[in-house]
Amino acid sequence: MRAHLQRVPDPRSRRGRWYPVLVFLLLICACAVVSGARTITEITEWGQRASNGVLEELGIRRHLPGRRRAPSKATLTRLLAALDGDALDAAIGAYLAQDHHTDAATTGSAPPPAIAVDGKALTGSAHRGRRHRHLLSAVTHRPTVTLAQREVGAKTNETAASRPLLEPLDLTGTVVTFDALHSVKDQVRWLVQEKKAHYIAVIKGNQPTASSQLKALPWEQVPVAHTASGTGHGRRESRSVKTMAIAANLGGIAFPQARLALRVHRRRQEPGKRQTRETVYAVTSLDTHQASPSDLGGYVRGHWAIENASHHVRDVVFAEDASTVHTGSAPRVMAALRNLAIGRLRLLGTDNIAKTTRAIRDAPEHALWIWGITDSPLLPGT
């Protein structure tokens, strides 16, 4: 982790630095956020609670002999506002990617790995007439790890930002899922021809032409190719998948190299509530010999799951929507630190992020082990 964070340029003036090395401050932030810190104030408090031993492991003793005081809120506030958000996101993405293999090679009948492109608003970052910040992310389906993130300012700019977002990633053999609103013909063609990836584009009502074309297909004549059901979070859900070759039926579709059309019908029943039904249409460059109906339904479901496994966690566990941080790069930097914490914990096999962050918060030494700074937790019996 330290090696990746060293790539982030230091925005501070060389004069008057209390903490000469930027990485120490970034590690303080990473340790605090993985311990559940939601705000810059809570990051500061984590540093103040940390023992001298923890601070020494992070590097403060080496650079500040005799001065082991953790950084103040003012120091961290100025730093996070001035950081290069692109550089930090690139460093975090590279760190998480090294443990999450998105290589095209697959073993046996395992489906290719998938990455979802999705946007999220930082609603609390609006300030004095300035619109809230908006971030576009590339997130792996399973486990949920954010490999890239860009600030796009407003949701209408997501289409222009999707290509720069994916450009640095090795997408060979990967399935990229996205809302079709994010795409234009040239970008989809670039994704398939130059990045050697496949795609699944989910068609919504805000793409009326493509939506009408797909709905008009003779789905009643097509048998259900796959069904699945399950129970979780107190609700029961069932899904059915139909697929149809579109070369002959929909030759004018606006998606290059599209091979199949998908129809996914979902029913959800929650206790004490009426059953809800939803039908989703999609197109994909995958052909029948490259992915089964079960795989295709799993990709669509995996794209939906980003809301629960990433965005929902950022809002509920880390109170992202409630954050009023708005200065400079600070809103994006805080979101990047949350992505880092969630991604690392997911890669370690954590299902309950809230429970795990509470456990780490109660023993700051554990955060050092999370980031590989120590070989094992420092507390006896852990």
Rank of each mutant, 00 (worst) to 15 (best):
I43N: 01
P380I: 11
S376P: 03
V21R: 03
L191Y: 01
F255V: 05
H366V: 14
A322F: 04
I373F: 08
G230W: 08
G59S: 02
V54H: 14
E56W: 05
G272A: 02
Q187V: 08
L147M: 04
W190E: 06
R314T: 01
A261G: 14
N249M: 12
R61I: 10
T102P: 08
V33E: 00
L55V: 01
L345T: 09
T144Q: 07
K355A: 08
R266T: 15
L55K: 13
D287R: 14
I60P: 01
W219H: 10
D103H: 09
T374H: 05
A114Q: 06
L191F: 01
H303N: 06
W46P: 04
V224I: 06
F178A: 15
G124H: 11
I360L: 07
F24M: 11
T39N: 07
A74K: 05
R338C: 12
T174A: 15
H101E: 10
V145R: 12
H4N: 08
L166D: 00
G129W: 03
G272S: 01
R78A: 12
A154N: 06
H63I: 06
G47D: 04
I353Q: 07
A309K: 12
R49P: 03
T243G: 06
R259T: 15
V202I: 14
A363L: 02
H182K: 08
K242G: 00
L345G: 01
P20V: 00
L122N: 02
S212D: 10
E151P: 07
L379Q: 09
V241F: 03
H63M: 05
A94K: 05
R17I: 02
L169C: 13
G108W: 12
V283S: 08
Y299C: 05
A341C: 13
R338A: 02
R263N: 13
H63S: 09
L26M: 06
V317E: 02
D10M: 02
G302W: 03
L5F: 15
Q6W: 03
A81L: 09
